[in-house]
């Protein structure tokens, strides 16, 4: 059974690119355009890994991660931030919220696959 990866990004092209790379590697993908959308799509579904942007409308990435940590079924879901953001303060917030890694865009294909393979739940 293929592993399910959730990608949360307001940039449709980024979602598609990640989808193409991960889809070709045999992963199943759930796409969400912001934190609110992601939370509604997470509802009851099992995901092996969440990849989220930081700067998004409606609900930003940090708020989303904090909200995920409050969901009993996703409390320990591995999360990676994929962003153009460089702010140390935001990075610290992400670390405090239990994010596994912080990737700065643009991502390299091997690096993304390596991160997914490393952190996706079995």
């Amino acid at each position: 059974m293929p592993k399910t990866i959730m990608i949360v990004d307001d940039s449709a092209s980024t979602r598609q690119l990640a989808g193409i790379v991960l889809g070709a590697a045999g992963y199943e993908l759930i796409e969400a355009c912001d934190g609110n959308d992601a939370l509604s799509k997470l509802n009851g579904r099992k995901v092996n890994l969440i990849i989220s942007d930081v700067n998004m409308p409606n609900m930003d990435g940090i708020t989303f991660v904090q909200a995920v940590r409050n969901l009993p079924e996703h409390k320990f879901a591995p999360i990676i931030m994929l962003t153009t953001g460089l702010l140390k303060s935001t990075r610290e917030q992400a670390r405090a919220a239990g994010v596994k890694a912080w990737m700065v865009k643009p991502f390299g294909k091997p690096q993304l696959l390596d991160m997914v393979a490393r952190f996706a739940l079995p």
Partner: peptide
């Protein structure tokens, strides 16, 4: 070709930075 296209697509990420 699939690998090439897949690699090329990764370079389209410039758009996200430009957009921001």
């Amino acid at each position: 070709i699939r690998e090439e296209i897949s690699d090329t697509l990764v370079y389209l990420q410039f758009q996200d930075r430009v957009s921001q």
